[in-house]
Amino acid sequence: MASASRISRTFAPAPSNSKLIDDHRFRALLSDDDWGRLPLAIWRRFSKRLADGKTIVYVGEVDQASISLAGWCVAQIVRAIGGPLPTGAETGVPMIVAVTEDAATGGQIWTRMTGRRSGFPQVISSCKRFAGPTGLEEYIGCGISVALRICVAHEALVFRSAGYLLQIGRSKWPLPEWLTPGDLTVTHSDLGGGAFRFTLEIVHPLLGRLLRQSAVFKEATS
């Protein structure tokens, strides 16, 4: 799409100019057998650590999206803590994911920008931290984070929520289930040729599937 091309030229750094460091943080969360079942391209993508403050950009397009009425309501409510969920279900629109090494936490800041056919793009930011009860958590904002467990399924890397936490000062408390949007699953699957699919799904125990969004990406080039 023309809009996707414009975005990639504006935001894409040259990967060849980025300092890469061998990264074992994700691999350490999986058994050797599970890691060995992943395609080589996923190994490389999740073993590539940038120097602190550097960014790598992936450019793609949303090809599947759905959101229920309950999902739309939940997405509006959580805007009070930074708007971590998609609020629309448009397809054929560009999406950019920028991953930046965070020197302060030793984690990664993920910024996702999704285009819209009218109005400004939606921007969602979070921070993946290698901490918490499972060794990996996603910090959303306002002291709220999601503990994540990772596994391998059908040669894809899968991230599943393992509880939502509220941190005040140095203390953390688990949030009751009724205060959470439900079970979150993020799947990263390789498509070959440098492309990969990123799928987000949230299912509530009572309200069913709230939303699903899938996009296909490639690493941006200058």
Results as ranks from 00 to 15, higher is better:
residue 10 T to F: 13
residue 29 L to R: 08
residue 6 R to H: 05
residue 32 D to M: 06
residue 187 T to P: 00
residue 213 Q to W: 08
residue 209 R to Y: 08
residue 95 M to G: 03
residue 205 P to K: 04
residue 32 D to F: 06
residue 55 T to N: 02
residue 64 Q to G: 08
residue 31 S to F: 10
residue 54 K to S: 14
residue 158 V to W: 07
residue 1 M to N: 03
residue 20 L to F: 09
residue 168 I to Y: 06
residue 73 C to D: 01
residue 185 T to Q: 14
residue 106 G to K: 11
residue 100 T to N: 06
residue 149 R to C: 13
residue 220 A to N: 06
residue 123 V to Y: 00
residue 33 D to F: 13
residue 61 E to M: 03
residue 142 C to I: 01
residue 14 A to L: 06
residue 152 V to I: 09
residue 199 T to R: 14
residue 199 T to M: 10
residue 166 L to P: 05
residue 1 M to A: 10
residue 8 S to E: 11
residue 13 P to T: 01
residue 14 A to K: 10
residue 193 G to K: 00
residue 151 C to A: 14
residue 201 E to A: 12
residue 162 A to L: 07
residue 58 Y to M: 03
residue 7 I to Y: 08
residue 1 M to T: 05
residue 138 E to A: 06
residue 64 Q to I: 13
residue 200 L to V: 07
residue 81 I to H: 03
residue 212 R to D: 07
residue 5 S to G: 09
residue 116 R to N: 12
residue 130 F to D: 11
residue 53 G to R: 03
residue 6 R to K: 04
residue 7 I to W: 13
residue 131 A to D: 15
residue 112 R to L: 07
residue 108 Q to G: 06
residue 187 T to Q: 03
residue 208 G to S: 14
residue 2 A to G: 12
residue 153 A to E: 08
residue 161 S to K: 10
residue 62 V to L: 02
residue 139 Y to P: 06
residue 32 D to Y: 03
residue 152 V to M: 00
residue 122 Q to V: 05
residue 113 M to Y: 02
residue 36 G to F: 10
residue 111 T to P: 11
residue 17 N to F: 02
residue 184 L to Y: 14
residue 2 A to Y: 05
residue 85 L to C: 11
residue 30 L to Y: 05
residue 161 S to V: 09
residue 4 A to F: 09
residue 152 V to A: 03
residue 4 A to R: 11
residue 58 Y to W: 02
residue 149 R to H: 13
residue 8 S to C: 13
residue 134 T to I: 09
residue 52 D to P: 13
residue 143 G to I: 03
residue 163 G to T: 12
residue 59 V to I: 13
residue 87 T to K: 09
residue 159 F to V: 09
residue 130 F to M: 07
residue 148 L to E: 07
residue 159 F to T: 08
residue 132 G to M: 14
residue 181 P to C: 07
residue 118 S to Y: 08
residue 34 D to Y: 01
residue 22 D to F: 15
residue 49 R to F: 08
residue 131 A to F: 12
residue 138 E to G: 03
